[in-house]
Design a protein around this nucleic acid. Structure first.
Lengths: 259, 259
DNA sequence: CTTGAACCTGACGTAACGGGAGGTCGTAGC
DNA sequence: GCTACGACCTCCCGTTACGTCAGGTTCAAG
């Protein structure tokens, strides 16, 4: 189509940088990695860019603006010029990647909003309380996989804020009553205790989906408690060792029910 | 509150990594930069982490999960524990930064969608056509500031797709008629030519906001043409040199009007 | 011929680790 | 008591896309 650039304008590296809004250093870098080398050099070694170089640089800049890496750009610009399919594949993949990033970003923003609400809200936690919240976030995230967390979030959303609050209130009541039984040494086959244990498990069921998925989140929750009961207990309004005793007690009650 | 960690469990670096879902290498890194150093060492130099170290690591991981840098985390964890205000400021700033990122991401995704539509759409451009589109994106972006691009986008949106298409059709008609006049050498003070120039400028006005903002985008558009007429001309269905001649001709017509 | 701007080639720094080399420590089994 | 093997130690290089000197050469104007 055009000749082989043996005619037409030439640009020095500084001119090219100004013309395209890049920097001289970036052009040096592109040269170094072989992405865009000047078509010519003067006898003293200064780079002379041709019109073809300019057009290639425009393409590079446009693709970089779409978030592609220099390596990806080099790959797609290396293919023959009519390789529109490769270009489409690359852009499609990029779109998918960016969409995934956008989802994660939105989740992050949502979580930050939640934490800031907790700080600024009426509850106004003390610093210790907030730091404990941070620790629990870690514990939660290392104990549950992303999938499991999502399922729990869905269940919470399905219950609604009011439902979650009601569950929390009922759970607090159960803890108080069960702690009394633990301290009184009520036998684990006592009908009243068995009823309380049943309500406890029914309460937990509200947060776990039915079927195998629920089994997984339930197992993960149990593992979280086993490995971090000290940590988790500290954040509760009852002493950690009493909570551990309570969970052990509940296990014995359930063992009696199974037998 | 608790003693100074002189009692309680100890963790080796591997145990701590497994317990918190990090890697030994990351813990080495945290140690190296002073973010989290083991409370103790064995006589042979092995790190022994205390319960306090564990809790600090939990906080670090939670804050990293919110997208904060290790430097920011170190800063906020260095302050006295009751410095909830600093924490809130940091999280607020982080929220703002992430929100800005989300906006940019959405713009990128939108542009990728547009480009993919252009590839897959009925127009099905040839590879050259698409590469030219890429080059024009660069030209467009280096010529207009972000603000100016936004204003042009708003005007386009206000005109709607049909309005833009109508403008394009009218502009094509004007180009054809003016090119005839250029080739015929019609004098620049000819009333018919002056009428065409008036329609040309009125057409351009549709894309530039009124007032100083419009003046800026108009100036930027002119600069874009001056610096990249070769590039821009290539993407048009008329020869580049004829387009340049046309624009010069228009300038002379306007000069005659002003005088 | 001078001088200041533009250009050249290295080389180091960035963030948050990953991965490997080469050596030491600890303990379980023989 | 010896050996093996896993866990641990301390460097050190590599990653992305350049920014930022440093020290030396070339260009263009006066």
């Amino acid at each position: 189509m055009t000749g082989r650039d043996d005619t037409g304008r030439r640009w020095s590296i500084g001119e090219l940088a100004r013309a395209t809004g890049t920097t001289v250093r970036a052009l040096h870098h592109y040269d170094g990695i072989g992405l865009l080398r000047a078509g010519e050099r003067t006898s003293s070694g200064h780079r002379r860019y041709t019109e073809g170089d300019l057009r290639r640089l425009y393409r590079i800049r446009a693709l970089r603006g779409l978030g592609l890496s220099l390596e990806e750009i080099a790959g797609v610009l290396a293919g023959s010029a009519d390789d529109l399919a490769a270009m489409r594949d690359l852009l499609t993949a990029q779109l998918r990647g960016l969409a995934a990033q956008a989802v994660r970003l939105d989740q992050l923003i949502e979580r930050l909003h939640g934490l800031l609400d907790q700080i600024d809200g009426a509850s106004m936690p003390g610093p210790d309380q907030f730091l404990t919240t941070l620790e629990m976030i870690s514990v939660f995230e290392t104990s549950f996989s992303g999938e499991e967390r999502e399922q729990l979030a869905q269940r919470r959303a399905a219950l609604g804020p009011a439902g979650v609050e009601a569950a929390r209130a009922e759970w607090a009541e159960l803890v108080v009553e069960l702690l009394r039984h633990v301290q009184h040494g009520t036998p684990t086959d006592d009908p009243a205790v068995r009823a309380l244990a049943g309500r406890w498990d029914a309460l937990a069921d509200r947060f776990h989906p039915a079927g195998a998925d629920g089994e997984r989140t339930r197992t993960a929750a149990r593992r979280m408690w086993d490995e971090n009961s000290g940590e988790l207990g500290r954040s509760l309004p009852w002493p950690a060792d009493q909570m551990r005793a309570l969970v052990d007690y509940l296990d014995r009650v359930r063992a009696g029910l199974d037998a």
